[in-house]
Each structure stands twice: as structure tokens, then as C-alpha cells.
């Protein structure tokens, strides 16, 4: 993505200092609130208590598995659902941005479906797929799909009209127009969409696991809750955060690599 003017770049040292300061402020406020005794530990355990619990969860199994195993089981479901959403959503969005008739056919349908909460599909996922992998995948897909489509569509729609006119003058075919004009111009929007999509997909999965699963990180959270252990709940939340962060970081890398290839 384009830097906001060359004058506004930070030295690495300054960036590091600020990032650390930000983290310290975050944990500092948390720690002071929890350690001051103003709130009971069940309300907010200290960062240290959560950290200790976190480490314990990675070493000894809780509800049958260690934290890593719970995460691995969640992540497998996620990868399948998200991959499917991106593979269908991005091309669909681009095509909708180019072919008006497709836009006209799909948009109303899509508009109707995208407001339906992924977890609202939980009952149908159970009715249709039972305990199979199809259930979670359906739920993740329904969460991850809309941003893929919307951002690809918007990216394609907001391409500079003169670029399109130029390409049309040169007699570009539909396929070349989409692949060589719309797609490259939409990449920032698409990647922004993928990042949101990955976030939502991951969230939907955990949401579904909170309600129906009997394995995975969401299940760990529920079980922590019914153990009346806020430390377990927060450990689970942090683990979810770390995985989500990692997914996001990977997509950022992808974004940077694509931009570099495009000579930015």
C-alpha cells in the first residue's frame, strides 16, 4: 500500500519503541486494574495469572487435548472454509464488477444472504451435515464469503474509467479486461477484503464451536467458562488472537509481495 508521503516514515528504532510502549500501556492498564484488588480475579485475572494458565494449557491436556491440539483442530476447519470462500468469492466479485447482468442476478440474492449471521446457520448445519466437516465449513464460508465478494466487486467498480476506456480502445477481450485491468487495479481492495474475510471466517468458526462443537478452541473457551475460570477463558481468547494475528500477518506478506511484483 502507498506510504503516506516519504516524510512520514519512522526509523525502525522509533517504531519499535512506540510499539513496545503501546503494548506496555495495554498490559499495564490490565495489570493495574487486576492487581489493585478493585475487581475480583473472576472479573479480571492478572496478565501473569493468565500467562501461567496459558502455559499450563499448552503442556497438559484440558478437555481431552492440549491447547495446540485444540487450535490445530479449529485451524483445519478454518483453512477449508476460508479457502473455499476466497476461491469462489474473489472471482465472483470481479465478474460482477464487469458483467452487469451477473451483478443484476447475484446482487439481490447476495444482499439477502450476507446479513444472515454465520452462527444462524448452525441449526441448519447440524440438520444437513450432522457431525461431518461440512457443518463447520458452511458456517466459516458464510462468514468469510461476503467480504471476498464485496471488496473484489468494489475494487473492480472503482477502477479509473480512463484505464478501462484505454483498454477498450486497444480491443481487450472480457477475460483480458478482468485479469489484466480489473484484477491488478483491485488488488489492494481484494487483499483488504481477504484480511477481513479471514478475520470473520476465523470468528465464525470459533462462534460455531462455542455453541455446538466438542473440540476446538471455542469448545475450550466454553469449558473454561463452565469451570468458572476466567483465566482459562482469557487464555483461549489470547490463543485465538495469536492465530488470528498469524493469519493476518501471512496475508500482509502476500499483500506486500504482490505489490512488489507490481512494481510499487
Amino acid at each position: 500500500m502507498i506510504a503516506l508521503g516519504a516524510t512520514d516514515t519512522l526509523s525502525f528504532r522509533r517504531w519499535l519503541a512506540l510499539s513496545l510502549a503501546g503494548l506496555m500501556a495495554f498490559f499495564g492498564i490490565w495489570w493495574i486494574t487486576a492487581a489493585s484488588g478493585a475487581v475480583p480475579p473472576q472479573f479480571l485475572p492478572t496478565p501473569l495469572a493468565v500467562f501461567e494458565r496459558f502455559v499450563a494449557l499448552t503442556q497438559s491436556p484440558f478437555v481431552g487435548y492440549t491447547l495446540q491440539q485444540h487450535l490445530a483442530s479449529s485451524f483445519g476447519r478454518f483453512a477449508l472454509g476460508f479457502g473455499l470462500a476466497a476461491a469462489i468469492g474473489v472471482p465472483l466479485g470481479l465478474l460482477m464488477g464487469w458483467f452487469r447482468w451477473l451483478d443484476a442476478v447475484v446482487t439481490p440474492l447476495f444482499d439477502a444472504l450476507r446479513f444472515i449471521a454465520p452462527i444462524a446457520w448452525v441449526p441448519f448445519a447440524a440438520l444437513w451435515f450432522g457431525t461431518g466437516i461440512g457443518g463447520p465449513v458452511l458456517i466459516i464460508f458464510s462468514g468469510a464469503f461476503p467480504p471476498c465478494v464485496i471488496n473484489a466487486y468494489r475494487g473492480a467498480k472503482y477502477v479509473e474509467p480512463r484505464l478501462i476506456e484505454a483498454a477498450q480502445t486497444l480491443g481487450a477481450s472480457h477475460l483480458r479486461m478482468i485479469v489484466e485491468v480489473l484484477l491488478p487495479a483491485s488488488v489492494p481492495s481484494i487483499v483488504a477484503g481477504l484480511r477481513i474475510s479471514a478475520g470473520l471466517g476465523w470468528q465464525s468458526l470459533v462462534g460455531a464451536e462455542l455453541i455446538v462443537a466438542s473440540s476446538g478452541i471455542g469448545y475450550l473457551l466454553v469449558k473454561g467458562q463452565s469451570n468458572i475460570s476466567t483465566a482459562i477463558v482469557m487464555s483461549g481468547m489470547i490463543a485465538i488472537g495469536i492465530v488470528g494475528f498469524t493469519i493476518d500477518a501471512l496475508l500482509r506478506m502476500l499483500e506486500r509481495r504482490i505489490n512488489r511484483r507490481r512494481g510499487r
Binding site: 487435548y65 491440539q69 490445530a72 483442530s73 485451524f75 483445519g76 476447519r77 483453512a79 477449508l80 473440540s215
Partner: peptide
């Protein structure tokens, strides 16, 4: 990753 999930299921 998928393989790991399958391993967990297995």
C-alpha cells in the same frame, strides 16, 4: 494444516 486436523480427528 488440514492434515493436522485429520490427524487430530483420527
Amino acid at each position: 494444516m488440514m492434515r493436522r486436523h485429520i490427524a487430530a480427528a483420527a
